[in-house]
C-alpha cells in the first residue's frame, strides 16, 4: 500500500532569515556563516514498506522526523529525493481541525472540513447525523467554533475525519482528544477501522497505545530509521534507550 524508497527531505533553515534588507545589511558587517550549516536533513534515506491492513507505529523523540514523514506520505510535501508510492485513498488526521474556520458554526464547519478532506456533498449529507451523533455536539450545531472549548473542537474534528472508511489512515497523536468517555469511544472507533482492514500509519509518544494498536513499529531518530520490526521488541528497546 505504502512504499518508501530512500526518502530524504532537506529543509533550508536559511530561508527564514537571509532574505531581507535588514539581514543583508547585517551580513555586510558580520562574517558569513558556513552555508552548509543551514541545511537541515529532516529525513535521510528512509525506506520501508507497509502492507495492506498493517498498522505501523512511528516512534522517536521530538524532531526525529515523524511528522515530516507523515506529511510526505499524505502528499503535503514532496521529498527532496527518493520515491513514495501510495495506493489507495488517504485520510489524513495530521492535525485535527486544521480546516476549521472559527467564525463559522459547527454545521458549516462540518461541510467545510469535509470538503477539505475530499468528501463529496452527497457523502456529507448522508453522514451528517452520524458525525453530529458521534461528536456529542448536537446542541451546539449553531454555535461558532471559536466559542468551542479545545476539547469540543477536537471531538468535532475527530468525528468528521473518521466518518469515512479510508483505505489508508494517517494519524498523528490524536487518540487523546476529549474527555475520558470520548477517548474510549475514539479508541474503539479506531479499532473498528483497523479491524475493518484499514492500513494505518500512527505516530504517538504513548508507547502504551502503540503497543495496543500496532502490528509493526518503525523507530526514527534524527531522520534515520534506527530499527523496525515487531512491536513489542522495538518498543522495549526504545523505552530502554530513552530512560536508560
Amino acid at each position: 500500500m505504502i512504499n518508501l524508497e530512500k526518502v530524504s527531505m532537506k529543509f533550508n533553515l536559511g530561508i527564514e532569515k537571509n532574505f531581507s534588507m535588514k539581514q543583508a545589511f547585517i551580513d555586510l558587517f558580520t562574517k558569513k556563516k558556513d552555508k552548509n550549516n543551514e541545511e537541515f536533513w529532516a529525513l535521510t534515506d528512509v525506506s520501508f514498506h507497509v502492507k495492506k491492513g498493517e498498522v505501523v507505529g512511528l516512534i522517536g523523540s521530538n524532531g526525529a522526523g515523524k511528522s515530516t514523514l507523515l506529511k510526505i506520505v499524505s502528499g503535503v510535501m514532496k521529498p527532496t529525493s527518493g520515491k513514495v508510492t501510495v495506493n489507495g485513498v488517504i485520510s489524513p488526521m495530521i492535525e485535527l481541525g486544521a480546516g476549521f474556520d472559527p467564525e463559522l458554526n459547527a454545521r458549516e464547519n462540518i461541510y467545510l472540513n469535509g470538503a477539505i478532506l475530499g468528501y463529496s456533498k452527497k457523502f456529507i449529507d448522508e453522514k451528517f447525523d452520524e458525525i453530529v451523533e458521534f461528536s456529542e455536539l448536537r446542541d451546539f450545531l449553531e454555535v461558532p467554533v471559536k466559542n468551542f472549548s479545545s476539547g469540543m473542537t477536537a471531538k468535532l474534528a475527530f468525528s468528521i475525519a473518521t466518518v469515512v472508511n479510508p483505505e489508508i489512515l494517517i494519524v498523528d497523536e490524536i487518540l487523546s482528544v476529549g474527555d475520558i468517555k470520548f477517548q474510549e469511544k475514539s479508541k474503539k472507533k479506531m479499532m473498528d477501522m483497523i479491524n475493518g482492514g484499514t492500513t494505518v500509519l500512527y505516530v504517538s509518544h504513548s508507547l502504551e497505545s502503540i503497543r495496543d494498536l500496532c502490528t509493526k513499529v518503525v523507530w526514527l531518530e534524527h531522520g534515520k530509521v534506527i530499527k523496525m520490526g515487531e512491536t513489542k521488541k522495538i518498543c522495549d528497546e526504545y523505552y530502554k534507550s530513552q530512560i536508560g
Partner: peptide, 15 residues
C-alpha cells in the same frame, strides 16, 4: 475539488 471550491466561496460570503 469543485465542492471544496463552493465551500470556500460560501464561507467567504457567510463571513
Amino acid at each position: 475539488y469543485w465542492f471544496l471550491m463552493t465551500q470556500l466561496i460560501s464561507r467567504d460570503f457567510k463571513k
